[in-house]
């Protein structure tokens, strides 16, 4: 590809005409965001790898068969596919009923996931890894808003429409998510300090 930065829409058009490098550019540009969106929902790296491949395979088929709607934007479109596949898979795999608790969080958050101990082995004591860990511990409703705002680039109004709540509720969930993350990070830092300076 040339050095000129092409838009996603231009890359899609070039790819549709058979240029595989255009697709590679799209993949490199967006793979991390798509993968992060999926992983934060399914909380399982191996499943997230599979689902990310499914998302891009769906993308390839849609574009090559000429069914891609060029009026829409590529990234929000592919992120919507990723989000829907991840949510479907999350519910199918777990087979847990969605019971909403009084605080609006799902009962699923009280359950341990089998992969957690394996994940824990790899967690290093740095801020980003702690942050990743703490995001996984957020109530589902808060994690959902966080993923939609940060990784799917949706506005709070779009999130409110997509999740069937008021914009104030969407903002409130984000606020609690941020406060919870802040508290958890502070607790982790304090625990680390106590460990470090143990007498």
């Amino acid at each position: 590809m040339s050095n000129v930065k092409l838009t996603d829409g231009q890359l899609v058009s070039i790819y549709k005409n058979g240029n595989e490098e255009a697709f590679e550019e799209l993949l490199v540009r967006h793979k991390d965001r798509v993968f992060t969106t999926i992983y934060l929902i399914v909380k399982d790296r191996y499943l997230a790898e599979d689902l990310m491949q499914d998302v891009f395979i769906k993308t390839i088929k849609t574009i090559k068969s000429g069914r891609y709607n060029e009026e829409g934007k590529f990234l929000p479109w592919i992120l919507r596919i990723a989000h829907n596949l991840a949510i479907d898979q999350f519910r199918k795999e777990r087979r847990y009923p969605t019971i909403v608790m009084e605080d609006g969080s799902s009962v699923m958050n009280t359950l341990e996931f089998s992969e957690a101990p394996i994940e824990s082995e790899h967690i290093k004591q740095d801020t980003y890894n702690l942050l990743k860990q703490h995001i996984q511990e957020l109530p589902e409703s808060q994690r959902e808003v966080l993923v939609m705002r940060h990784y799917m680039q949706m506005s709070f109004q779009e999130i409110a429409d997509a999740t069937g709540v008021s914009i104030n509720t969407a903002l409130g969930r984000m606020r609690y998510a941020l406060i919870n993350l802040r508290k958890k990070l502070n607790l982790s830092e304090n625990a680390y300090d106590k460990n470090f300076y143990r007498k």
Binding site: L27, K31, M52, G66, K132
Partner: peptide, 30 residues
């Protein structure tokens, strides 16, 4: 501060997954 940390946070898929996708694309004909 939390928002700025979240903005920098990302997960990366494995090279194998990326290769699989590229190979699928090259082999897929309509």
């Amino acid at each position: 501060e939390v928002v700025s940390q979240l903005n920098k946070l990302k997960y990366q898929p494995s090279e194998k997954s990326v290769r699989n996708i590229l190979n699928f694309s090259k082999g897929y004909q309509v």
